[in-house]
Design a protein around this nucleic acid. Structure first.
Length: 264
DNA sequence: ATTGCTTCCTGAGCGC
DNA sequence: TGCGCTCAGGAAGCAA
């Protein structure tokens, strides 16, 4: 579910609530949620909370790291006295001050991996550059695009190309850039690539500023909603701002919205 | 090597 | 009210 701006919002919420707390224990309520390569107890205190693509990384004092992927419906709920429950609690991290962090996930795709802090995580090593970093440039994207024949929408969703985009932002970025989502990646012009990079950064920055997009499942750690959904131009829309109809097609099995008048 | 189809699972919303 | 159908923000695994 959550894409880069939503994950970034969660990370900022976690920093405010649990950074510095000492982990007492970790409990799993649905088998398969936690993948632990090291004992989950005795992690020590949380020293840092960061993000890479859509992954949340929690580092602890005793050389452990938690790698969390929320997938479609995962969310963290802060429980200040350890007694709160939630409808779909899959795992819970308990702290020594009796507070806890609930990992709630309706569709059960989300995972928490617990590993030694120096362990290599293949999924993270495979990620492309952060879209808001200096590594994500038009020349980089042009190199990547030249030998790809898939539709540009699928290209943007490939986490090895750029880390953190999902269905909603890929759709909105292509609309802002005026590019048809079906266009073959290797036919993108230098100018289109530049436009794509510029709008990717602009839209992601704005979405982060607005605490992400809340359609159905996404909530911040503080349980407030994001507000970027108020600024979506084509995702799940019927009419474009230009007055022409928004079309819905399927690319790579995912709903794709675009305006044929604005995107070609 | 690259692409695209299927699958994991639960719930909401819709038409009948 | 209830049934059956479609859809959902992700990505691994597999076959072609």
């Amino acid at each position: 579910m959550p894409e880069l701006p939503e994950v970034e919002t969660v990370v900022r919420g976690l920093r405010k609530t649990v950074l510095g707390k000492t982990i007492r224990s970790v409990e799993e309520f649905r088998p398969g949620t936690i993948r632990a390569n090291v004992p989950a107890a005795d992690c020590g205190s949380i020293t840092d909370i960061t993000r890479r693509g859509k992954y949340i990384l929690i580092l602890t004092a005793k050389q452990r790291k938690f790698i969390i992927h929320l997938r479609m419906t995962g969310k963290f709920i802060y429980d200040d006295d350890g007694t709160r429950s939630s409808n779909h609690c899959r795992a819970k991290i308990f702290f020594t001050d009796d507070s806890a962090l609930i990992f709630d996930d309706v569709r059960t795709f989300g995972t928490i991996t617990i590993a030694s802090s120096d362990a290599r995580i293949p999924q993270i090593d495979a990620l492309g550059p952060e879209p808001l970093s200096g590594d994500f440039t038009a020349s980089y994207l042009e190199r990547q695009s030249k030998h790809r024949r898939m539709p540009v929408k699928s290209f943007l969703l490939d986490q090895r190309v750029v880390a953190g985009l999902g269905n909603i932002y890929a759709i909105e970025i292509l609309h802002a850039a005026g590019i048809d989502p079906r266009q073959r990646t290797d036919t993108l012009t230098g100018k289109q690539i530049q436009t794509l990079v510029r709008h990717t950064k602009k839209i992601l920055k704005e979405a982060i500023r607005l605490n992400g997009t809340t359609i159905t499942d996404f909530r911040r750690v503080d349980e407030k909603n994001g507000s970027f959904q108020e600024f979506l131009n084509v995702y799940q829309k019927k009419v474009c701002r230009c007055g022409n109809p928004v079309e819905r097609i399927v690319i790579g099995g995912r709903s794709t919205y675009f305006c044929a008048a604005c995107q070609h």
